[in-house]
Simulated scan of single mutants.
Amino acid sequence: MLPDSADVTSVYVVHVPGFHVPRPLGAQQARGHLPCFLPAVSRDAQKKMGAEVRSWRIHRRTGHTFAQLARFMNPIVRGWIQYYGAFYPSALRPFLQRINAYLLRWIRRNYKRLAGYRKARTCLQGITQRYPGMFAHWRLCRTIWGAG
């Protein structure tokens, strides 16, 4: 005999460090569907990754080239994508868009002729199209946070 639907939820909740496993909807339980395993990156992990990226102060590294930034960032970001994006990669999209926003700030600060937001965004979009493999996160997300 199967346990109550409330017990089914408690039996199938999985705790994995750095992941958030959403609880199934009550309607799915009532129809007899068991909860699925679809863990996403937790908010705490997102905050830690965001703090790490902020600590890099990308927009202040005006002495570096785009390729140097990619060499510095790619191993770390690739590891995050492999670990946290293994099951639910689209949950990382807002975080990866923020990295693109930091790269946009770097462009605006490094190239004075691209100080305007639209010019810098057009430049970054052109770079993502010409060199799609330059940054590890561009295979999942090429848009900029807040760009619409």
Rank of each mutant, 00 (worst) to 15 (best):
residue 123 C to W: 12
residue 23 R to L: 15
residue 59 H to A: 14
residue 127 I to F: 07
residue 126 G to Y: 04
residue 94 P to D: 08
residue 115 A to S: 14
residue 57 R to F: 03
residue 109 R to K: 15
residue 70 A to Q: 08
residue 61 R to G: 04
residue 65 T to C: 04
residue 32 G to C: 09
residue 36 C to A: 15
residue 101 A to F: 10
residue 68 Q to E: 15
residue 144 I to E: 04
residue 31 R to H: 04
residue 125 Q to R: 03
residue 31 R to P: 01
residue 8 V to T: 15
residue 117 Y to T: 11
residue 97 Q to H: 04
residue 81 I to V: 13
residue 121 R to T: 14
residue 13 V to I: 12
residue 42 S to M: 01
residue 16 V to E: 00
residue 132 P to L: 10
residue 46 Q to Y: 00
residue 12 Y to W: 14
residue 87 F to Y: 14
residue 21 V to F: 00
residue 15 H to A: 13
residue 84 Y to D: 05
residue 135 F to S: 12
residue 74 N to D: 15
residue 16 V to C: 00
residue 136 A to H: 07
residue 55 S to L: 08
residue 39 P to N: 08
residue 33 H to M: 12
residue 84 Y to R: 03
residue 102 Y to Q: 15
residue 142 R to F: 06
residue 31 R to K: 14
residue 101 A to G: 13
residue 63 G to R: 09
residue 13 V to F: 01
residue 102 Y to C: 13
residue 30 A to W: 04
residue 87 F to Q: 03
residue 119 K to C: 03
residue 70 A to I: 10
residue 144 I to V: 15
residue 53 V to Y: 00
residue 62 T to I: 13
residue 5 S to Y: 02
residue 93 R to L: 11
residue 105 R to P: 00
residue 147 A to M: 09
residue 67 A to V: 14
residue 100 N to D: 09
residue 41 V to K: 01
residue 129 Q to T: 11
residue 19 F to H: 00
residue 8 V to R: 07
residue 133 G to I: 00
residue 54 R to K: 10
residue 24 P to G: 05
residue 49 M to F: 07
residue 66 F to N: 02
residue 88 Y to Q: 02
residue 65 T to E: 07
residue 84 Y to I: 05
residue 74 N to Y: 05
residue 36 C to V: 08
residue 90 S to P: 03
residue 82 Q to A: 10
residue 13 V to E: 14
residue 98 R to H: 13
residue 74 N to E: 11
residue 121 R to C: 09
residue 70 A to M: 09
residue 119 K to T: 06
residue 105 R to M: 14
residue 86 A to S: 10
residue 45 A to D: 09
residue 39 P to Y: 02
residue 99 I to L: 15
residue 69 L to T: 04
residue 20 H to K: 02
residue 15 H to Q: 14
